[in-house]
Computed example of a mutant assay.
Amino acid sequence: MYQIVAGIDTSEERAAAAADAITDLPLEDDSVRVTLLHAFDDDGEEVPVEEVPSVQRARNALDEAGIEATCAGATGDPADAIMERADDVDADMIVVAGRKRTPAGKVLFGSVTQSVILGTDRPVFVCSAGDVL
């Protein structure tokens, strides 16, 4: 079984990009298991992770492709949550949907994507939904 942890933020466009990237991997659909991880803010207003629109969009896309997906929520730093979940399930790969950035945005690249890339020894697949900040 090939385990993937996909970090899903609130952007439905990036969630769809992550799901598309996973479905395009050269793996047999029945050999892939995906955990869609959404990190909530620490503001105490947590809804069930399955009700987060971006998580729903990614899960629907994976379901349509015949790929098994489960949803998980976490609180706190999203990068830490993604890496911790990857360790918990012994993930073979982490998938994150990065944002395209302007030159100034690249200088200030303190993003979840960068933190995951630099903070894990696992392969990280970075896809893009075309957002420009």
Rank of each mutant, 00 (worst) to 15 (best):
A17Q: 04
E12V: 08
A18F: 01
D42T: 15
K100F: 00
A72R: 15
S11F: 00
L27C: 08
P48A: 14
P123S: 13
T10N: 03
T120C: 09
L25Y: 14
D80R: 07
P53H: 05
D30W: 05
E50I: 09
M93D: 09
G7F: 00
A129C: 10
P48I: 11
A79S: 12
V116A: 00
E12D: 04
G110N: 13
A6P: 04
D121S: 09
I82D: 01
D41M: 15
G66M: 11
A6Y: 00
S111T: 14
D9E: 02
A39W: 06
A19S: 06
R57I: 04
V55I: 12
D43L: 06
D77Q: 03
V52G: 02
D43E: 10
A104F: 14
T75I: 09
M1T: 12
V49I: 11
V126S: 04
G44P: 13
V49Q: 06
A74R: 05
L118V: 00
C71P: 06
D41F: 15
V34Y: 03
Q3K: 15
V126D: 01
E12L: 03
E50P: 04
V49L: 07
E84K: 06
V89D: 03
K106W: 10
Y2C: 07
A97I: 01
T70K: 14
R101C: 06
C127L: 02
D24K: 14
L118P: 00
D29C: 07
I22L: 10
E12P: 03
G66P: 12
R122S: 08
T120W: 10
A104Q: 12
R122W: 07
C127W: 01
D29M: 08
R59L: 06
A19C: 11
D92S: 13
P48C: 11
A58Y: 01
A19L: 07
G110W: 06
G44E: 13
Y2D: 04
D29S: 12
D77K: 04
